[in-house]
Amino acid sequence: MTTSASPAPAVEAPTREHALSLLRSMVRVRRFEEKCAEQYAAGKIRGFLHLCIGEEAIAAGVMGLLAPGDAIVSTYREHGHALARGLSMDAVMAEMFGKLEGCSHGRGGSMHLFDVSRRFYGGNAIVAGGIPLALGLALADKVGGRPGVTACLFGDGAVAEGEFHESMNLAALWKLPVLFVCENNGYAMGTALARHQSQTNLAMKAQGYAMEATRVDGMDVLEVEAATRHALAHVRSGAGPWLLEFVTYRFRAHSAYDAERYRTKGEVTEWRKRDPIALFCHRAVEQGWLAADDLTLLEREADDEIAAAVAFAEAGTLEPTADLARHVYAEGSP
């Protein structure tokens, strides 16, 4: 795939252990989200439900390379990022069931998964609204002399927002340790990229801000990893932010359901041929990194974990309505 500012780093063959870990991460997200769709249809999950099915390589590839001290700011399509960061399926499923045991105590739902102990600062549901927060978290690390990098995830729709441009400039100007991760799935909700951007190579936007950037095939988890590793080393060295544009595709609707009038069935079928899980599995078996039955074993493993998460969420408790006003201000605040 074309690159803008920097050449794509070479992809190395993974060990069996590493290949398993990448596949496990993608499979967990895929199976978990398929279960979410089922639970949505059953009325157990309500509100919006933005699935990242088709985009799992980015969650698996990026999150796996972040250190515990790094921070993450994500979007409303963040189940994959949360799971790959280490939030438990129990806590995420319970959140979507609106239960107190959820990772945001039922206050956030699908779009607002938080786990501060893992420096996972939420799904943000205002498009581009989380980007400035990432700058601040990065500034705090920089000022505090900590080596942390803040990964800031957003979609192609966000590049139309002023906050994206303001933040790109400020992050580059102050050399903030931010890894900008654009998941370009080709659609801002139902508006195709070419219908809302004059420049559809989003990595090119970084040039105007004197920032390094790479455009990467987001369906190839090894490409995602290699590009992320390279960019992360740059950001961690203090040399300033980096924009990664991952070209990907969302197989499902924008939210739980839409009529998909904005794209053709043929286009979806074409992209499904580049399913990141199938693509990686095929190659891994062909290259001898993985065995033919590894996928089935990992799927079973994920399904067991998901079944337990659904049971956990079902058994969860509803917060008493008397506690409605808790956490508007800090406890004990006047």
Binding site: P132, L133, L137, A140, V143, E166, L170
Partner: peptide, 19 residues
């Protein structure tokens, strides 16, 4: 810079990060 949304949001993030 004259980027009210970015520098206010950055202030929010910095406060979340311990400043």
């Amino acid at each position: 810079p004259l980027s009210e949304s970015a520098f206010v949001g950055m202030g929010i993030g910095a406060a979340m990060g311990g400043l």
